[in-house]
Design a protein around this nucleic acid. Structure first.
Lengths: 174, 174
DNA sequence: AGAATCATGTAAGGGGTTACATGATTCG
DNA sequence: CGAATCATGTAACCCCTTACATGATTCT
């Protein structure tokens, strides 16, 4: 059972299939090359997620036999998989601890796939950060001691995301 | 096998035993009440960590029978456990993602136990943040596109920790 | 000659979460 | 009367990581 506060790499796999069908090992290399500095995944784990995605009907596989190698299982996005990916792409992340991972991955795909809606996501994410930061500031007002320290730490981290997001709104890829 | 990039709640348990011996359920309540907003732990997991700490010789247990209840296992710090805790307390955390948890827990114990060395830890942590932030800034110079975005995100987060740390140096607990 | 790459997976092990078990007391 | 608290734990389950298995090709 996956909790909503846990990150899943499945949308990323869907994203890599937006271009064209790929087999597992190919996806693994793409994942490492493109997002390896942000999101780590093991090969076994990737295969497991592909199985889950297939069971969920978000991708479908065709087997390509090869001489002297295990046959390739080439995955393509289903219509539902495409929809799930595009929906994921537009959601701002509510958790600070996920921004460094999920938000960055979303921005990667906006650039990589030249999709519209980047400024909407950035605006929505800024709103989330602002709202949370203000909530923490308010709570810190009435708090003291350690609790205040905690709230101000989080406020500071959230507020640091905002100016960074501003720089994302202009096209950042040359 | 625990990786060094994973957080362990064991030092926190040692910290709660610095005052006086406690039994597991008591530690659980203390943990939730005092650090619950920063560090979550399940009761089963806490018992498991206590077992590990005992096996490692950092705590020792004495069993107190009770009428009509399971007997309490009251844990006390060994000399080695005390040393391990105090050593942990002085280390700055190298990972940004752990600062919100481990660093805050350390500050909690400095206050709670009125221990000396807070300004040294704060200074060391500031140095870590500065150094990492500058490294990211340097790397971002030569990078472009998505990689630059990632590096600048991290730099921003690290730099936001510094002014917050400044406010910790003055006694923050009334 | 030995290592890395390609391409799939299975198996074992570790750690965390949730559920379950017990049995008296206390609170609403 | 039912729920929560106290106090320990065990068992099942899930996910992730690491190691292993296969077998040809290509690089150093």
């Amino acid at each position: 059972m996956t909790r909503e506060s846990d990150l899943s790499p499945q949308p990323v796999l869907l994203g890599f299939l937006m271009h064209q069908p790929r087999h597992g090992y190919d996806l693994y290399q793409e994942f490492r090359r493109e997002l390896g500095s942000v999101w780590q995944i093991g090969l076994s784990q990737l295969y497991a997620h592909l199985r889950q995605l297939e069971e969920a009907g978000l991708i479908s596989a065709t087997t390509e036999p090869q001489p002297s190698r295990p046959p390739r299982k080439v995955y393509s996005l289903t219509a539902e998989g495409r929809a799930v990916f595009l929906s994921w792409l537009q959601q701002p992340t509510p958790y600070l601890r996920h921004m460094r991972i999920e938000l960055l991955a979303r921005l990667y795909f906006f650039d990589r796939l030249s999709l519209p809606g980047l400024s909407e996501l950035v605006a929505a994410q800024k709103a989330v950060c602002h709202k949370q930061a203000q909530r923490y500031a308010q709570l810190a007002e009435g708090a003291g001691g350690f609790r205040r320290l905690v709230l101000e730490f989080r406020r500071g981290q959230l507020e640091a995301v905002v100016p960074w997001l501003d720089r994302c709104q202009v096209p950042w890829s040359q």
